[in-house]
């Protein structure tokens, strides 16, 4: 192994990868949410359909899509490697254990929360991304140009109660994942100082709640108000 692979295969190094990919995925959430807010426009989905067409065809977005996939893959791969190492580090557990006395629930269950998010991601991609990118959506004409009607797919999907429930529950899991993950990512990079760490912690909490609430409101809005 050379110095580079040695560095990033240590537990300290893998957590650096976890934190950089995690923060990158957080930036993706912001972009995704801002784009999705166009669903609230009362224009029969015109703005959203034009936007989703742009996202599916713009070369810069398509390149970033590859980076995004790599971000997910590295985050998930290192999570699996670290979880296996962590389990192996304590083959025999305690008969009596009171972790609630010394740590938060979300900090101890990042793997479980991450798995919920991964299952959600697969469902979500299968339902929206796959038809949007590889065909299977109805067409709609906006100002003499034909677009894929992804908006209609959104309306149809969020008319199903259990589908809405999956989304809301997954966003709660994501919120807990981020409440620990956001500030933890800065720690894993060694970015910790009493000058700014309290801000990062508060900002991370607000970020997690606002972003996830923003996503969760969309299916609820369509189910109850559309």
């Amino acid at each position: 192994m050379n110095w580079f692979t040695k560095t990033f295969s240590s537990t300290v190094g893998r957590k650096i990868v976890m934190s950089i990919t995690g923060l990158f995925l957080c930036s993706f959430l912001v972009v995704h949410l801002i784009g999705n807010l166009q669903l609230f426009k009362d224009d029969g989905g015109e703005a959203f359909n034009i936007y989703s067409h742009f996202m599916a065809t713009n070369p810069i977005i398509r390149t970033m899509e590859i980076v995004l996939v790599l971000g997910f893959l590295f985050h998930i791969y290192d999570a699996i490697v670290l979880t296996r190492k962590n389990k192996a580090a304590r083959p025999i557990g305690y008969a009596d254990s009171r972790p609630q006395e010394n740590s938060t629930w979300s900090s101890r269950n990042m793997g479980l929360l991450g798995t919920v998010i991964l299952v959600f991601l697969i469902i979500h991609l299968w339902n929206f991304f796959v038809p949007a990118r590889f065909g299977g959506l109805d067409g709609v004409v906006i100002e003499n140009v034909e677009y894929d009607n992804l908006y209609l797919k959104v309306v149809q999907s969020f008319d199903i109660w259990w589908y809405v429930a999956i989304y809301v529950i997954s966003m709660v899991a994501l919120a807990y994942h981020l409440i620990h993950g956001f500030q933890s990512a800065f720690q894993s990079l060694g970015l910790d100082h009493k000058k700014y760490t309290p801000f990062i912690q508060k900002f991370g909490y607000a970020f997690s709640v606002i972003v996830c609430a923003g996503f969760a409101v969309i299916p609820l809005y369509f189910f109850f108000l559309k």
């Binding site: 740590s103 620990h180 894993s188 060694g190």
Partner: peptide, 28 residues
């Protein structure tokens, strides 16, 4: 064969002499 740090803070909370988590970030 020790495990990785998940930044749960359990170690510092249970440390009998109060070693701070700041040390972990300094190590990084």
């Amino acid at each position: 064969g020790f495990g990785a740090c998940s930044n749960t803070g359990a170690c510092a909370a249970e440390c009998p002499v109060g070693i701070s988590l700041e040390n972990i970030n300094m190590l990084r």
